[in-house]
């Protein structure tokens, strides 16, 4: 599988990464190399093998429904680039 600069643009958009034209070319080359390397998986016969999402054959543990987290808004928002009236600010959202 080979990737061109236009596809890099699409992927970068999905991943919300600003990538300029020059970078796109380099990324296209690198990503194509990596995909070519990864493509050897296509030759593996994995018919009937159950996909393995996790190394542990364990199941999800459940948490009791008890409030354990106090309000720490001030501490968290001290880390934020832009806040006002208790809200995180972003450029206007259009719905």
């Amino acid at each position: 599988m080979s990737i061109d600069a236009a596809q890099v643009g699409q992927i970068a958009h999905l991943a919300r990464l600003a990538v300029d034209e020059q970078e796109s070319e380099a990324h296209a080359r690198n990503l194509s190399d990596i995909l070519a390397f990864v493509d050897r998986l296509a030759e593996v016969d994995s018919k009937d093998v159950e996909p393995m999402a996790h190394p542990l054959e364990m199941t999800q543990r459940l948490r009791p429904d008890q409030v354990s987290e106090p309000n720490e808004r001030e501490r968290f928002q001290a880390l934020a680039p832009s806040v006002s009236d208790g809200c995180y600010l972003v450029p206007r959202v259009i719905e």
């Binding site: 998986l41 593996v44 996909p51």
Partner: peptide, 12 residues
């Protein structure tokens, strides 16, 4: 082709 296949080979 990629993710699911990789998970299968992971089990192998």
């Amino acid at each position: 082709a990629y993710y699911l296949k990789a998970q299968q080979v992971r089990r192998m």
